[in-house]
């Protein structure tokens, strides 16, 4: 398979950059800019929530994309892809049956055992729901293992909301276990059955016990500062907050240098960080 005569060392993986091929099994439009992709690999991905893959099309390019489904035993991988540029534009044209390349899973992700017996608050802005769904799904599926879960999900207008059906069905579950707060900045004259405001607005009114609550955040860079201020006011220590950060990433394996936040490599130690471990890291949240 590889044109190598003298392997440098036995443990070296000569195929570090070779993607595995996977089949697109479903593509659904979610909003004007985002599509939902379900792909089937030749074996289970074996990921943790919050990890990402490097998704590629041969001859077009490769990009980091969050895994949007919880850990699973089958060969399925779910992703939400925003049409943002040259690769993602072509991805949006794919039909079921198309072949894509996958490397990974990469990154730290969440360790579900950290969440055992805890109440969980997920705060997401826009596309941030895509990665955090990989955490929400397993928590909702095992109510006896975890405490309650609160999901605060915000986007600009109703037209941009992702996973609406799922958010609505989660909101109809046992109120003591699952609560969902859906917000938009403005309704833009569209029908809307949620609230209006920023994701920071409901935080002060959360009925939580700070001692047994873990918070996970994912959203655009501007969101973190304000949400973190509100969480501080609620008395949640930084060691109980997880942030999922975005950086430019070209390799996913700690080699290309693009994702560096000071001495930290976001693709290796992140993209999910326990906040107390990066609170003094300059440039982390700006």
């Amino acid at each position: 398979m590889c044109a190598m005569t003298h392997p440098a060392s036995p443990e070296l993986d000569p195929e570090l950059y070779l993607p595995r091929m996977a089949s697109v099994v479903a593509v659904e439009s979610m909003t004007a800019r985002e599509k939902f992709f379900k792909v089937e690999l030749s074996k289970p991905l074996g990921h943790r929530p919050g990890q990402f893959v490097m998704l590629s099309l041969l001859g077009i390019g490769e990009a980091p994309i969050s895994i949007s489904c919880g850990p699973r035993h089958d060969n399925i991988l779910e992703m939400v892809i925003r049409n943002a540029g040259s690769l993602t534009r072509v991805l949006h044209r794919l039909q079921p049956g198309a072949r894509v390349g996958i490397r990974g899973p990469f990154g730290s992700g969440f360790h579900l055992d950290d969440f055992n017996g805890k109440d969980v608050v997920c705060i997401v802005g826009g596309l941030g729901l895509a990665p955090l769904r990989s955490l929400i799904q397993p928590i909702i599926a095992q109510p006896q293992r975890f405490g309650s879960i609160t999901i605060i999900s915000g986007c600009r207008t109703p037209a941009e909301e992702l996973y609406r059906d799922e958010l609505e069905s989660w909101s109809r579950m046992d109120q003591d276990k699952v609560s969902v707060i859906r917000l938009v900045d403005k309704t833009a004259n569209l029908p809307w059955n949620g609230k209006i405001g920023l994701v920071t607005a409901p935080i002060p009114d959360l009925k939580i016990n700070p001692a047994r609550t873990l918070v996970a955040l994912c959203g655009p860079p501007v969101m973190y500062k304000f949400v973190l201020m509100e969480l501080k006011a609620l008395g949640i220590p930084n060691s109980q907050i997880f942030v999922d950060l975005e950086r430019r990433m070209k390799c996913g394996v700690g080699q290309c240098g693009h994702c560096q936040i000071n001495h930290v490599y976001c693709c290796q130690e992140g993209p999910v960080f326990r906040f107390d471990r990066i609170e003094n890291l300059q440039e982390a949240l700006q």
């Binding site: 590629s56 041969l58 001859g59 390019g61 490769e62 070209k250 390799c251 290309c256 693009h258």
Partner: peptide, 27 residues
């Protein structure tokens, strides 16, 4: 300095073959 970018190229003549290449990049 060892940072790099990654780019794909495909062979215009056949459209079916090509390469993925890392290229030097700079912070």
């Amino acid at each position: 300095c060892y940072c790099f970018n990654v780019v794909d190229d495909f062979n215009l003549a056949d459209g079916d073959s090509g390469t993925r290449t890392s290229t030097w990049d700079g912070c």
